[in-house]
Simulated scan of single mutants.
Amino acid sequence: MRGCGCTPHPCIPTGVSRFQDWFLMASQRSRPLPGYHGPPTYGSLLLLLVEKVCQPGRKPQRLDENVVLYQEWELDACVDAALLEASMDRVNELPFTYQQLRIFKCKLDQLYPLGYPESLIGHLGYFFLEMTPEDIHKWNVTSLQVVKSLLIISKGREMDEQVAMLVKRYVAGGGHLDPDTVQDLATFLPIYVCSLSPELLGHVQESVIWKIMPQHLVGCSLQQKDALYLKARQAFQHLNGSEYLLKIQPYLDRASTEDLRDLIGRNLTVNVTTLKLLQPAAVKPLTVLEMQRLLGPNLPELKAETGASPIREWIISKPQSDLDKLGLGIQGGIPNGYLDLHIPD
């Protein structure tokens, strides 16, 4: 029988020198090894190490308190993965150690190398806490009830990445979260936000918006960013100038012209790096004076980025005479005496 092989048994060594040490320790035990009579010999210990076979009468037909007393190598050798799958309720009820649970997980991983079926996922219970994001990535979850039950189990247990992957797999399979479930997600780090539809993002609590970091927005669509930007403006509207800018900055790539003018009206300035993230359609209508006020002390940085969007689009839409007033030597504006005839797309 092939052992689980997830991690070496803590009582069975993996090297020759360690095996010799283990033999000296084991040879002093008064109780015979399972399946052997008399004190352990070097040969019997080596055979046990190599074979790890289940001894007669030790293969359980059901999970009960006796199995809890099995040594880890016995669990590996004697407990069948199909029995575990059929007995997940007992796995959660009985006081198995973390090491024993890892052996059980390894057996189930071997039974389902391509990912657990939903029939098993729905019965994992607290065994879900043993899962990694990589495990969950293999799953096909279609039941909202399963998602909800696993969210309840995960609360307060540092399962943010696992929960994010669970939501991602559910949505990727065509599942639709409801507003109540979105509310339940509020207790986890918002790694999951890019998995929610723009409509559901409207139900996200403001407390979640406060926890969002720039890296959490990577992978969001423009529609998702639009929804999050509206939520962020609402959540941060009562902050003072510098605090507001700090919190709203990750969302500014979805700001409108009026939003930028609002920043100008609040005497808030951005650097050219942030300017380059803005939508050309939002930046282009700004006057030269408004651009000067938006950049503030960062205005000299504009000269080195005249070829970057949206700065390029802004420059070619402005009279050269207005650009000259900046004193930066920026060229490319509308020559004096010409009109900018804007033709709608």
Rank of each mutant, 00 (worst) to 15 (best):
C4R: 08
C11G: 12
T14D: 15
F23G: 06
M25F: 14
Q28L: 15
G35L: 10
Y36I: 09
L45T: 09
L46D: 05
K52Y: 07
V53C: 12
Q71A: 13
Q71Y: 13
E74P: 06
D76S: 15
A77G: 09
C78G: 10
V79C: 08
A81R: 09
L83A: 10
L84Q: 08
M88V: 08
N92T: 10
T97W: 10
T97L: 09
C106S: 12
Y112P: 02
P113V: 04
G115V: 00
G122Q: 05
Y126C: 13
Y126G: 13
Y126H: 14
P133F: 01
D135W: 07
N140G: 11
N140R: 14
L144Y: 00
Q145M: 11
L151P: 01
I152Y: 05
K155N: 05
K155G: 05
V163Y: 01
L166I: 01
A172C: 05
P179S: 03
T181C: 03
V182Y: 02
Q183M: 11
T187R: 07
T187I: 15
F188P: 02
S195L: 00
G202L: 04
V204R: 00
V204H: 00
E206H: 15
E206L: 15
V208G: 01
V218R: 09
V218A: 10
C220N: 02
C220A: 01
S221F: 06
D226A: 11
Y229D: 02
K231E: 03
S242E: 14
L246V: 11
Q249D: 09
Y251E: 05
R261D: 09
L263E: 06
L268E: 07
V270D: 04
N271T: 10
V272R: 07
L278C: 01
Q279R: 14
K284S: 10
L286M: 04
L286Y: 04
T287M: 06
R293I: 10
L295E: 01
G296L: 01
E305Q: 12
T306L: 02
G307C: 06
K318D: 03
G327Q: 08
G329L: 06
G329I: 11
Q331N: 13
G337C: 08
D340R: 14
H342L: 13
